[in-house]
């Protein structure tokens, strides 16, 4: 019983996403776009919404020098998105997407 609940716990996110995708593929595009946005909402590294400044930038009191605009979003070829700040720290030790384990390469950056 404990084993099952553990597996459910860990796989929950992935399962939901894939089920949603399979479902939306049969439907029309607007639904897919919507589920897409939900999936990318939160940075899986610092757990803050990607459209907000990352946890690190929020904690730093350097806003006076650089402004808040510094903290941009980065999308990988795998279509996962993170704060650029968060991802650049992670790729220093492992150049893979923490969500899908694919080799990380940047597709685009911005807000």
């Amino acid at each position: 019983m404990s084993e099952n609940s553990r597996m459910d716990e860990n796989d929950n996110d992935k399962k939901e996403v894939s089920q949603e995708k399979m479902f939306t593929l049969k439907k029309w595009n607007a639904v897919a776009m919507w589920s897409w946005d939900v999936e990318c909402d939160t940075c899986a590294i610092c757990r803050v919404q990607v459209m907000d400044a990352c946890l690190r930038c929020q904690a730093e009191s350097k806003k006076d020098f650089y402004g808040k605009q510094d903290c941009v979003v980065v999308w990988g070829e795998c279509n996962h998105s993170f704060h650029y700040c968060c991802m650049s720290l992670w790729v220093k030790q492992n150049n893979r997407c923490p969500l899908c384990q694919q080799e990380w390469s940047i597709q685009r950056m911005g807000k």
């Binding site: 992670w90 030790q93 492992n94």
Partner: peptide, 24 residues
Amino acid sequence: QHSMDGLGWSPTRRLKDVVWGLHA
């Protein structure tokens, strides 16, 4: 910390994953 098989540490993991891992 450095693992290429996707089973190692990743910042998406949380303390509860560590504890469930030890429990297992």
